[in-house]
């Protein structure tokens, strides 16, 4: 049975926008599911729906996480799962970290929300998490504020925060989109490494086909809130069934391979 299984997920906003429309997807324990699609295809809304973070939206369908039906859970039970068994990393680490608190405090706070621990013990844990995600001089930097970190370091802090309780599922919404390529490579390396060591399943949301190719085991292609195509990453990349997926793969200008005079364009389904 999948760790996370989403069936017929539909999200309607009061404005009348149907952001997600009957979506099915599965994240297997310990595996990485890439969710790709263009802007507005409903990727972020899906991830927020899974964590129960959508406010004033109508969510219907079924979201099963480790056998529990999340949509029928009360807010208290959802809160207990969130951050503990499933955690999230967002796109823009600067705006997602609170500028008024030191980074270690924000990590320790996540830990103390779910486990009994003294402030000191939680701080020590936060420092060790910072070390684990590759922050140099973690002990000293732990008391720094988010604005004193670079973009890549901030994203590492976000990842440390998400992983401090060793969740079963990490939802990462465009975790490297705001970063430079060389820093993106570092963060992807970190995710790859953490996933190998801790066995955390990852739902990796991105619009970059290359990122999916490098990290995901399975992939779901979304368009207009619907699933266009899904399958193991090799199958989907080598023999996509739909013209849309084919187009998305081909229209990316690449640094390797033959150089077309004009790029192929995408057919919208």
């Amino acid at each position: 049975m999948s760790l996370l299984s989403v069936r017929g997920l539909t999200v309607d906003f009061p404005s009348g926008v149907r952001a997600v429309d009957g979506l099915d997807l599965d994240v297997e324990a310990g595996r990485v599911l890439g969710v790709v699609g263009e802007s507005g295809s409903g990727k972020s809304v899906t991830s927020l729906a899974v964590l129960g973070l959508l406010r004033n939206a109508r969510v219907s369908g079924e979201i099963r996480f480790a056998g529990q039906d999340l949509l029928s859970l009360g807010p208290k039970a959802m809160r207990a799962l969130r951050g503990d068994r499933m955690a999230m990393v967002f796109q823009d680490p600067l705006s997602c970290l609170n500028p008024y608190y030191p980074v270690a405090f924000q990590i320790a706070e996540a830990y103390r929300a779910h486990r009994r621990a003294s402030r000191k013990a939680a701080h020590a844990l936060a420092v060790s998490m910072l070390e684990r995600v590759g922050i140099p001089e973690a002990r000293r930097r732990a008391r720094s504020y988010p604005h004193e970190f670079s973009g890549g370091m901030r994203q590492r802090v976000m990842i440390a925060m998400a992983l401090c309780l060793e969740p079963d599922l990490l939802v990462a919404d465009e975790p490297t989109t705001a970063l430079d390529v060389t820093v993106q490579a570092q963060v992807l390396d970190l995710l790859r490494d953490l996933r190998e060591r801790s066995g955390t399943a990852i739902m990796l949301i991105t619009h970059d086909m290359g990122v999916v190719a490098g990290l995901a085991d399975d992939v779901v292609v979304m368009h207009g809130g619907k699933r266009v195509e899904a399958g193991p990453v090799r199958e989907v990349f080598h023999s996509p069934v739909t013209a849309y997926t084919r187009g998305l793969l081909d229209c990316v200008p690449r640094v390797d391979g033959p150089l077309p005079h004009r790029l192929p364009t995408v057919e919208v389904p």
């Binding site: 964590l51 973070l53 809160r79 207990a80 799962l81 969130r82 951050g83 503990d84 955690a87 999230m88 967002f90 997602c96 970290l97 609170n98 706070e109 996540a110 929300a113 779910h114 976000m158 925060m161």
Partner: peptide, 9 residues
């Protein structure tokens, strides 16, 4: 939103 995602009360 991050604070809520952490599961804070």
């Amino acid at each position: 939103r991050t604070a809520r995602a952490k599961g804070l009360p």
